[in-house]
Design a protein around this nucleic acid. Sequence first.
DNA 1: TATTGTTATACTCTATAACTATA
DNA 2: TATAGTTATAGAGTATAACAATA
Lengths: 173, 173
Amino acid sequence: MPRTSRTSRPIARPVRRNADADLADLPEVSAVDQVDTRFLQSLLGYNARRAALAIIERFLVRMEEFGLRPVEFSVMSVIHHNPGVTSRQLCAALNLLPPNLVGLIQSLDARGLLTRLPHPHDGRAVGLHPTPEGQALMQQAEQAALEIEEAKSLGLTPAQHRTLLQLLQKVYL
Amino acid sequence: MPRTSRTSRPIARPVRRNADADLADLPEVSAVDQVDTRFLQSLLGYNARRAALAIIERFLVRMEEFGLRPVEFSVMSVIHHNPGVTSRQLCAALNLLPPNLVGLIQSLDARGLLTRLPHPHDGRAVGLHPTPEGQALMQQAEQAALEIEEAKSLGLTPAQHRTLLQLLQKVYL
DNA sequence: TATTGTTATACTCTATAACTATA
DNA sequence: TATAGTTATAGAGTATAACAATA
């Protein structure tokens, strides 16, 4: 078993010039030609994070025209499908912390994408409603999101796409 | 179709006291009882991110005793399995940016978990090697990571676990 | 007393530009 | 000229404590 690796995969021995041959055998100093990441690839957390980042990278590019970052998109999407939802409900649904939602809501309000109306039967709460502009934007943005995440644009079959969604939800729901 | 929702799921109408009945029908102000997140749940990016965060949450707790955060764990794991790997190779393998790796390496070096030796045939590069302490720590930490991410501890069958890993790698590799 | 929304704040993570030493 | 490693720095994301108004 070569000293340069603790794995079973064959690893090329470091390239050594003849002039260094007498020195090179003393210290355990070797070079790596191909990085072995097989251990990390056996961990679900690592793979889920890498996959999420890969998809979000595409998402960022596609959503530039709508001026929506991922969290803004998900907040507007929930408001779009749940007019009158409160900040607290949003935080619970999207696993956000209340202080971090405040600035987001203010920014989306300032852009004219949502309005804040009194809650019908809780004076502490505020209902979040999409404006017509917000509804129009989200109709386009959600269509674009669906296109990006289509099975074939990710190299998956429709069945694999469905399976992946189900298994991921089994993990976090 | 109720005005309070654009989805097909039946949504409870807001609770109204009789005294408000004459006012409540004028403005389109409604309350939401159950938040509908079905659209987001059809997006792979959203689900991958939520699943990754759920697993990483468990990871953070379990790795506290080793003093390793996720990125530190993955960096040490790659060094553990690839002694002599360079910073540049680490960045490529883990999708990190070089400036963000510098502090990590310095910190792990200061903790005595790795040593930085001259690269055998590139004077610009530095080879990263685990110390005996680093090797001992990673042997324990990797075992703990495997236990956390076992199929049954995530509510999956072994077959589902394998399928999930394969499909995630199809997306980001 | 508990909850909604908010402010202030700190810490981590991520990203870009620019420098040095070597190839 | 190009690459490895580094510095400085800015921005986004995430976290806790504490407060006012309302339930």
